[in-house]
Structures are given as C-alpha cells and as structure tokens.
Design a binder for these strands. Structure first.
Lengths: 195, 195
DNA sequence: TCTCCGCCTTGACCTGGGTCAACCCGAGAG
DNA sequence: CTCTCGGGTTGACCCAGGTCAAGGCGGAGA
C-alpha cells in the first residue's frame, strides 16, 4: 500500500476493503505540477480527477463577460476535477490550476467505473462524495443569498484557515464574487475599524 | 402498485426491482397540505422527505438579519425535504411551505435506511439524487458568481417555465437574492426596453 | 544596482440595488 | 357595494461595489 494515510481517511468515510484500495492504487498515477500548471483545462473531456497530495489548487471558470470566477480552492487531501461536467459527461468548462508546485494522485473515471462493477464499496464512496460536495455548495449558496461581501470574506477565512498566505488576494476576490479592488477596500475598511 | 408513474421515473434513473418499490410504497404515506401550510418547519428533526404529487413548494430560510431567502421551488415529481440537514443529522434550518394546496408522498428517512440494508438499488438511487442536487446547486453558484440580477431573472424563467403564474413575485425575488422592489424595477425596465 | 513584473492599493466617478414610505389594484368577506 | 388585505409598484435617497486609471512595493533577473 503506497498511500496508507489516504486509505485511512477514506475508510473513515466508508469501510473500504484493503484489497479494493490496492486495486485502486494500482490504477492511479502520481503527477507533479508546476505553479500555474493546469490539471484540467477547459474543453477537455472530464475523464479524470485526483487527490491533492501536496499544493493548493483553484477551480476557475471564465464567464461570458470574460471574468474569472473561482469555484473552489482545494488543498492536501481534497479532490480536484471537473465534477459536475464528469457527472454530465460533458467536456470540462472549468480550469484547475496549481497555485503552488504540487503533486496529485490521478484516477481515470473509467477505471473507477470498472472498480464499481467489482465491489459496492465504491458506489457507497461515490455517494458520500456527492453528498459532501452538495453540502459544500449549498453552504456557499446560502452565503450568497444572505451575506454581504464583507461577511462572506470573514466566513471564508473561518472556513479556510489553512489557505492563509497560500492564495493570492485576487483569487479570494474571485471566489467571493467581487473585484480585487473591492476586496482591497473591504480589508482596509476593517483595518481602520478594528485597529 | 399505487404510483406506477413515479416508479417509471425512478427506474429511468436507476433500475429498481418492482418488489423493492412496492416495499417503499408500503412505507410511504400520502399527505395533503393547505396553501401556506409547512411540510417541514425550522427546528424540527430532518427525518423525512417527500415527493410532490401536486402543488408547488418553496424551501425558505430566514437569515440572521431576518430576511427570508428561497433556496428552491419544487413542483410535481420533485423531492422536498431539508436535505443538507438530513445528511448532517441536524435539525432543519429550512421551512418548506406549500404555495398552493398540495399533495405529497412522505417517506421516513429511517425507513429508507432500512430499505438500503435490503437491496443496493436504494443506495444507487441515493447517489443519483445527491449527484443531481449537486449539479443544481453548482449551477446556481455559477449564476451568483457571474450573472447580474437581471440575467439571473431571465435564466430563472428559462429554467422554470412551469412555475409561471404559480409563484408570487416576492418569492422569485427572494430566490434571486434581491428585494421585491428591485425585482419590480428590473421588470419594468425590461418592459420599457423590449416594448 | 536598476528594472521589470506580479500583486496590491487608492482615488474619482458611476450604477445597481437596498431602504423606507406612499400608493395602487383586484379579490374576497361582510 | 364597500372594506380590507395581500401582493405589486413607484419615488426619493443612500451606499456597496464596479470601472478605469494611476501609483506603490517587494522580489527576481540582467
């Protein structure tokens, strides 16, 4: 077993026979990414995903207006991939970019599919993953519905303390749905108010 | 079988043995709701959900500021319930209200849990449901990130043509994340521009 | 050392939407 | 027939955040 810690984490979610995990490991491959390198680029088929072993990534989409918005940041232990597109068997509309030099463990969806045929544990895991991501998205929806940009900022740092110093401010702005100028002003306003 | 059409729809998602469906039907109960009546009220345990047989429902949450925001509208054939809270075994923070007199088919999560022990099809269905809801939420997130209120309005009616005339304007506003005054103005602005 | 570049800040100005308050209108109820 | 009430509209005013443009600043490379 090459990734016992990862196995540990997964098994906490859904019991996973170690033989099954060994099979999965055999199908996975490690990949190193430079800062700014894309793990997924828009237009590509959404046929793979990965677990972050090292580094921070951002999932970005550029709108019709040409504005970049950040859908999520992902760090060690989390999944990266164009999930929604994968589920809908569409080409990716999302870019996934390394914000630092990183390492990931890549799986082909096709391989996972094959594993699912062999043991129900993989379907159960897929369910957990879907449910977890649903909860994340719903939380974010709620934030857009009833928080101001400033409140969303505060909440962002509460929810992502591990990203301190690892993501540029402009990306935080793009995550909050505001411009970098607006974010800069919100921060200076708070500096003044709080001390 | 009491609900063959519903069985049809589900089976299109995930093959469901008819015996299993019959078991589920036996556990479900029909409930009639008056206009304005709540199917779920905030604070209650999130221990049940339902399929809408008739009527339109809204899922509402009131923010700390006391503002109502609408998370979703649900009509015939769709699911209602405090899904996120259910997954997290929390009391509901959401109210689910009938906007018209309605009928629903109610399931206890506990019962579904029991069914899952008996046959994998229920887990598969749960996975599909989670994935589907994820996609819906992500779409909405994207709309908040890169559309104006007016564009969200247009998209809303494109995505929910069946709600025309069935939901009050103020609730559409609460769904879009704006006030009813703002929505009214956006509409009159468009009336002027377009003719 | 100087320069360039990526990232952040600041200013001036504009605009969409929030807030508060008045008003309108159509449908039931008495 | 009138009153009331729920839902929608309109106006006046304000403010958060967008836009455009000009710096500022620290670090890497020549």
């Amino acid at each position: 077993m090459r990734f016992p810690k990862l196995y540990e984490r997964l098994t906490a979610q859904v019991p996973l026979p170690s033989e099954e995990w060994e099979k999965a490991e055999a199908l996975a491959s490690e990949r190193v990414l430079a800062k700014r390198e894309l793990f997924v680029r828009p237009g590509e088929p959404a046929d793979r995903f990965a677990v972050v072993l090292q580094g921070v990534f951002r999932a970005v989409r550029v709108s019709a207006r040409g504005v970049e918005s950040v859908k999520a940041f992902r760090a060690e232990g989390e999944l990266i991939g164009a999930y929604a597109e994968m589920l809908q068997r569409q080409p990716s509309m999302t870019a996934i970019e390394a914000l630092e030099p990183g390492r990931v463990l890549v799986f082909q969806t096709r391989d996972l599919h094959a594993l699912e045929q062999g043991h129900v544990c993989w379907e159960r895991l897929a369910r957990r993953v879907a449910e977890h991501h649903f909860i994340l998205k719903e939380r974010r929806e709620q934030e857009f519905l009833d928080l101001t940009a400033e409140e969303r900022l505060v909440r962002f740092w509460e929810e992502h303390p591990h990203l301190k110093g690892r993501v540029p401010q402009r990306d935080v702005a793009a995550y909050l749905g505001i411009t970098e100028e607006a974010l800069s002003r919100i921060m200076s306003r708070r500096r003044k108010r709080k001390g």
